[in-house]
Computed example of a mutant assay.
Amino acid sequence: MPLHPFDEATALETAGEHTWQGRTSPAYGNMVGPFGGITAAQALSAVLRHPQRQGEPVALTVNFAAPLEDGPFEAIARPARTNRSTQHWQLELRQQGQAVLTGTAFTALRRDTWGADEHTMPSAPRAAEIPLPTARKRVEWVNRYEMRFIDGGFPEHWDGRDTGSSRTRLWVRDAPARPLDHASLTALSDVFFPRVWRRRATLVPIGTVSMTVYFHADAAQLAEVADGYLLGQAQAQVFRAGYFDQSAQLWTEGGTLLATTHQVVYYKE
Rank of each mutant, 00 (worst) to 15 (best):
residue 4 H to I: 13
residue 214 Y to I: 06
residue 178 R to C: 04
residue 63 N to S: 12
residue 241 A to Y: 04
residue 14 T to Y: 00
residue 269 E to D: 11
residue 91 L to P: 08
residue 153 G to K: 02
residue 3 L to W: 06
residue 18 H to L: 03
residue 252 T to P: 06
residue 213 V to T: 15
residue 76 I to R: 10
residue 24 T to C: 04
residue 183 A to D: 06
residue 252 T to N: 09
residue 194 P to E: 10
residue 231 L to I: 00
residue 79 P to D: 10
residue 61 T to P: 05
residue 235 Q to N: 05
residue 244 F to T: 12
residue 264 V to I: 14
residue 135 A to C: 01
residue 100 V to W: 12
residue 197 W to D: 04
residue 14 T to D: 12
residue 46 A to H: 04
residue 55 G to Y: 14
residue 89 W to R: 06
residue 76 I to P: 00
residue 1 M to E: 15
residue 12 L to W: 08
residue 148 R to H: 01
residue 186 T to S: 07
residue 177 A to G: 13
residue 21 Q to D: 11
residue 251 W to Y: 11
residue 14 T to K: 07
residue 1 M to C: 10
residue 122 P to K: 02
residue 11 A to G: 02
residue 201 A to M: 02
residue 215 F to S: 08
residue 214 Y to W: 12
residue 113 T to G: 09
residue 17 E to K: 12
residue 1 M to I: 12
residue 78 R to W: 01
residue 251 W to G: 02
residue 85 S to G: 04
residue 150 I to A: 00
residue 152 G to P: 04
residue 208 T to H: 03
residue 56 E to I: 07
residue 138 R to I: 14
residue 4 H to V: 11
residue 254 G to Q: 13
residue 133 P to A: 07
residue 267 Y to N: 08
residue 118 E to H: 14
residue 75 A to F: 06
residue 213 V to K: 04
residue 185 L to K: 01
residue 158 W to T: 02
residue 181 D to W: 03
residue 230 L to H: 01
residue 265 V to G: 05
residue 197 W to R: 06
residue 204 V to P: 00
residue 243 Y to F: 15
residue 210 S to Q: 13
residue 238 V to E: 09
residue 242 G to C: 07
residue 256 T to H: 11
residue 8 E to F: 00
residue 174 D to T: 10
residue 88 H to P: 00
residue 175 A to Q: 13
residue 111 R to W: 09
residue 62 V to R: 02
residue 32 V to S: 05
residue 69 E to M: 06
residue 164 G to F: 05
residue 15 A to E: 04
residue 137 K to I: 10
residue 29 G to N: 10
residue 263 Q to V: 09
residue 142 V to M: 09
residue 161 R to K: 06
residue 93 L to Q: 05
residue 250 L to T: 03
residue 253 E to P: 03
residue 196 V to N: 01
residue 153 G to S: 08
residue 122 P to S: 05
residue 159 D to L: 08
residue 68 L to G: 01
residue 206 I to N: 11
residue 148 R to I: 01
residue 188 L to Q: 09
residue 38 I to Q: 07
residue 65 A to W: 00
residue 8 E to A: 11
residue 190 D to E: 09
residue 241 A to W: 01
residue 101 L to Q: 14
residue 86 T to E: 10
residue 136 R to Y: 02
residue 266 Y to D: 10
residue 31 M to D: 09
residue 141 W to S: 08
residue 83 N to H: 10
residue 186 T to Y: 02
residue 99 A to H: 04
residue 106 F to D: 12
residue 41 A to C: 01
residue 115 G to P: 01
residue 230 L to K: 01
residue 75 A to I: 05
residue 251 W to F: 11
residue 29 G to E: 12
residue 186 T to P: 03
residue 98 Q to D: 15
residue 23 R to I: 05
residue 236 A to W: 03
residue 43 A to H: 00
residue 121 M to S: 13
residue 184 S to N: 08
residue 192 F to Q: 05
residue 237 Q to S: 05
residue 74 E to T: 15
residue 209 V to K: 05
residue 68 L to F: 04
residue 164 G to H: 04
residue 40 A to V: 05
residue 254 G to C: 03
residue 110 R to L: 12
residue 31 M to R: 12
residue 175 A to S: 09
residue 234 A to C: 15
residue 268 K to V: 06
residue 123 S to L: 13
residue 168 T to W: 00
residue 10 T to H: 03
residue 32 V to F: 13
residue 256 T to A: 15
residue 49 R to Q: 14
residue 167 R to N: 00
residue 43 A to I: 05
